[in-house]
């Protein structure tokens, strides 16, 4: 249970960084930490101590296999979610570079031409 608690602390840290920091790059880092906290959480869902790979070979007993093997679905989900996180990260970095070009600052509190 402790590990889930630590994991949620990681998530909240990311959220705090995203909300409280004004620097664009720090916001991006906070976003990424949040994303990875979720990925870690999904991996933990499928974790089993001393687990075996989920490949059913002909000479295996199905019941012991089910007890011992790790859950493969969370790993597949996390791979997809990492790819999505990577593409979001690339887009965020690209946009923040362009923002720097236009406003000459990374401070979000000075980037406020839109309001109302």
């Amino acid at each position: 249970m402790l590990i889930y608690f630590l994991n949620s602390i990681l998530f909240v840290l990311g959220l705090y960084c995203l909300i409280a920091k004004k620097h664009l790059v720090k916001k991006i880092i906070g976003m990424t930490i949040m994303d990875y906290a979720i990925n870690l959480f999904i991996i933990l869902l499928g974790y089993k101590k001393d687990g075996i790979p989920p490949i059913l070979l002909p000479d295996m007993d199905i019941n012991t296999f089910l007890q011992q093997s790790v859950d493969p679905i969370p790993q597949a989900l996390v791979l997809t979610s990492i790819v999505i996180g990577l593409s979001t990260l690339a887009l965020m970095v690209a946009i923040s570079l362009r923002l720097y070009e236009k406003y000459k600052t990374f401070d979000m509190s000075e980037i406020r031409r839109l309001h109302g």
């Binding site: 690339a90 970095v93 690209a94 570079l97 720097y100 070009e101």
Partner: peptide, 15 residues
């Protein structure tokens, strides 16, 4: 391509 777009072709670095 993302690396190229972010570094070499961006005006940011030279700025």
């Amino acid at each position: 391509a993302v690396f190229l777009a972010l570094t070499i072709f961006g005006r940011f670095i030279s700025d």
